[in-house]
Simulated assay, not measured.
Amino acid sequence: MKWDPRKYTQFSSHRDRPFFDLTARIQADAPRRVVDLGCGPGTLTAALAARWPEARVTGVDSSAEMVEQAGALEGAPANLEFVRGGIEEWEPQPGTDVVVSNAALQWVPGHQDLMRRWAKQLDAGAWLAVQVPGNFGAPSHALMRELAASAAWSDKLDGVLRHADAVDEPEDYLGLLTEAGFDADVWETSYSQVLQGEDPVLEWVRGTALRPVIAALDPEDFGRFEAEYAALLREAYPQHAWGTVFPFRRIFMVGRKQG
């Protein structure tokens, strides 16, 4: 699946806020290695490098487009690097004291097992901080899945979209981290985002949730699918004179390994 860094960063003020809400809870003083899994275009990873200038900070992403843009960041700190790689294959190196994954693990089936593996591999005192969207039941996602499953599209889009079980509930993640030996802090936040412009919710999902559909359909078919989906979104998210409200629920978890 191909990513578009420019489209992804279109709503950066809204997309970036959960990252800082997540990482503010990490109380590591002088980490040796810091890893950002699913780093995207790298601007947020650079904030980690600036926060911990003595640490070796690595951003990891499976998208060649994202890693290329991240590697071209102007004024990047000297302690920052980016590598291309899948989250599924990543393992912590010795001295990895902070692992961050912001809005990425929802794309990885069975990511809970990965988190358990990382928890076992990390040293005592290491921090694991993860944020995943909790809005798979929202109209933006439910309508997309319903349209993809309709008679007109099911043949071409069967199995393309993840379902409502792409992430767990907060209490499940709390149990996972606690049972893995972490002091855990798990919470959720619903952001009442106000988006501007024509069809802003469609523009938002073009950068994320709609990417698998874009990859699965040829341009003509995608144009038809998008037109049908856009009409559904306009009804679900009415436009006001001052903007369109796009509520977005997110699930956060931060833990420090005991021992």
Rank of each mutant, 00 (worst) to 15 (best):
A164I: 14
E235W: 00
D168S: 15
Q196C: 06
A209L: 07
L174E: 15
V201I: 08
A124C: 06
E171T: 12
P92W: 07
A231K: 03
A138M: 12
V186E: 00
K156H: 12
L176W: 11
F182L: 03
Q193S: 12
G223Y: 01
V99H: 04
D155C: 09
N102W: 01
E169L: 13
Y173P: 01
D185S: 10
G207M: 05
Y229Q: 01
V194R: 15
E228V: 01
P139Q: 13
Q121A: 15
E146K: 14
A151V: 07
V186G: 02
R211T: 15
Q193N: 15
D183S: 11
R117P: 06
V201F: 08
V201W: 05
H163M: 13
A209G: 13
G159N: 06
K120N: 10
L195D: 09
A216H: 03
W107Y: 08
M144L: 15
A142T: 11
A148N: 02
Q106L: 05
F225A: 00
D168G: 14
A138Q: 13
L122D: 05
Q112G: 11
L174H: 15
G175T: 06
S190A: 13
L143R: 11
A129F: 06
A230E: 13
D158T: 15
A166N: 14
Q193V: 11
P219Q: 08
L195E: 12
I214Q: 14
R206Q: 07
N102Q: 14
G181F: 03
E169I: 11
E169A: 15
